[in-house]
Design a binder for these strands. Structure first.
Length: 459
RNA sequence: GUGGUUGUAGCUCAGCUGGUUAGAGCGCUUGAUUGUGGUUCAAGAGGUCGCCGGUUCGAAACCGGUCUUCCACCCCA
């Protein structure tokens, strides 16, 4: 080993225990995706650059990993461009492929390409890694998994309602109590901007408003002023900071506030329908709350906006989000297809479950039974027993070499094995095996003819 | 992309305003214990102090660069 190996910034190796815990989350999420009628698809890990570039704004373009062309990629670049050192124009000449940046845009591409085979409404889920050339932070990586579920081809609000229930089902199953599903509606934000006379500054207005819980009311006002909102407009925003009461009461206030805005009223109406219906049907462990300051992903969301907050006792931002985008496939030439979708932030959910100790206790156990190896003859007998145990679905193994017992026992202990089986000379003679319970330290002898008794004791 | 922060044994970390041979706990190996782990005791192995360069008689420590970690911003899952 000449040099210590390393992995790129923002990437990770996963240990066996981590993979098992991640799979636990994946399996639960998948199970509920399926019971809600979503179908899985997969798309390539890299796409043509023009599929991705320009879809996420300037900031997004910068964060897309570009793949260098194969072969002598510089020979095709003319001298003038090369010597101009203009990275942006040069990039398109030497790189025609890029790593997937999210799952939504490739999905839109997929829908357009397969529009004639798809039965709409199409409910799909997709769990694959994506890559971003971002600067890493805690819970933020350059390679991470996204779990998305989207519906395209239906503008029914029933979809939004289903997504709230889907979030509730998944987090309930994960035993993660007290998640807060926050909802807003782009139309409400547009309506507010309209009413305060700042339509043109919608994005600036919402970006500032979104920071309320971080920088407080005064901070938001200050930022709005910096972003060009008039003092008059900011004064009109005031009532938003003091919205109180139940979801429906807040919606009632918004209705009054937005009565002069057609768009805004539509948004209030939509949210009211969703809130009423969810209230009627009930949620298992999550709570649904209206949050007019919620303003993420505004570049393409046109209706509902979702964000899921971790339970209050953990300091973790959002663990999921999503929204409705009325014309997602439009960028690829297919008009009038409405879509709505949500995403689960796997890495953060993992951190939250870890912090709250919510992974099942037995999850780490990769081996239930280990047979100590006493030599060739003995190990063959052990292997026969192990075969029977494996057929019964028990995770069992024989230690591969007849090293000292102390070493074998220690290995069993470190692997968190619950039972160690001893088949030595004495046991061979009497056609039996000794089972040591590693947590209690007790031992029990079984006949090799009645392995079923031992199997029964395991369940 | 901007500003800051971190890096010393497999892991978690000490190491003073530059000074001789770089430490601890845990883990690991061996023995006490040739058929019994998790407890105990004894002994042992393991480090080009992230990497490259500079200052100095002398650098783990100071300076510059670079990589990495984490944090804030931007943005976002």
């Amino acid at each position: 080993m000449a040099k210590k190996p390393s992995i790129p910034k923002g990437t990770r190796d996963f240990t066996p225990s981590e993979v098992i815990k991640r799979n636990y989350i994946f399996d639960i999420v998948k199970k509920h995706f399926q019971t809600f009628g979503f179908q899985p698809i997969e798309t390539p890990s890299f796409e043509n650059s023009d599929t991705l570039m320009g879809k996420y704004g300037d900031e997004g373009d910068r964060l897309i990993f570009k793949i260098l062309n194969s072969g002598d990629y510089l020979s095709k670049v003319d001298e003038a461009l090369y010597s101009s050192k203009d990275s942006n124009s040069l990039t398109s000449k030497i790189s025609e492929k890029a790593l997937r940046y999210d799952l939504t845009v490739p999905f839109a591409r997929y829908v357009v390409m397969h529009q004639n085979e798809i039965d709409f409404p199409f409910k799909r889920y997709q769990i694959q890694p994506v890559w971003r050339a971002d600067r890493p932070q805690k819970g933020r990586f350059r390679e991470f998994y996204q779990c998305d579920a989207d519906v395209v081809g239906s503008d029914s609000l029933l979809q939004e309602i289903e997504f709230v229930q889907l979030y509730d089902a998944v987090f309930t199953d994960l035993k993660l109590d007290g998640v807060n599903i926050k909802m807003n509606n782009r139309k409400i934000l547009s309506g507010i901007a309209e009413v305060i006379g700042a339509q043109d500054l919608l994005i600036d207005f919402t970006v500032a408003l979104d920071k309320l819980d971080k920088i407080g009311e005064d901070g938001v006002k200050k930022e709005m002023a910096e972003r060009g909102l008039t003092a008059e407009a900011i004064a009109k925003v005031e009532p938003l900071f003091s919205l109180s009461g139940s979801n429906l009461e807040q919606l009632e206030s918004l209705k009054e506030l937005l009565k002069d805005s057609e768009t805004g009223s539509k948004g209030v109406e939509e949210l009211t329908f969703i809130v009423r219906t969810i209230q009627e049907m009930g949620l298992q462990s999550a709570k649904l709350s209206i949050d007019v300051t919620l303003a993420r992903g505004l570049n393409y969301y046109t209706g509902a906006i979702f964000e899921v907050g971790a339970p209050e006792e953990v300091k973790m931002g959002s663990i999921g989000g999503g929204g409705r985008y009325d014309d997602l496939t439009g960028i690829f030439g297919l008009k009038n297809v409405s879509g709505v979708g949500i995403s689960f932030g796997l890495d953060r959910i993992y951190l939250v479950l870890e912090e709250l100790n919510l992974f099942p206790e037995a999850i780490d156990q990769s081996l239930q039974v280990l047979c100590v190896n006493f030599g060739e003859k003995e190990s063959i007998a052990a292997l026969k027993l192990v075969n029977e145990l494996r057929k019964a679905g028990i995770k069992a193994d024989v230690y591969p070499s007849s090293t000292k017992m102390q070493k074998q026992m220690k290995y069993a202990n470190n692997r968190n094995v619950s039972y160690v089986v001893l088949i030595g000379e004495q046991e061979l003679e009497s056609n039996s095996f000794v089972v040591k319970n590693m947590t209690e330290g007790s031992q029990k002898e079984y006949s090799l003819h009645t392995v079923a008794d031992f199997v029964a004791s395991l369940s």
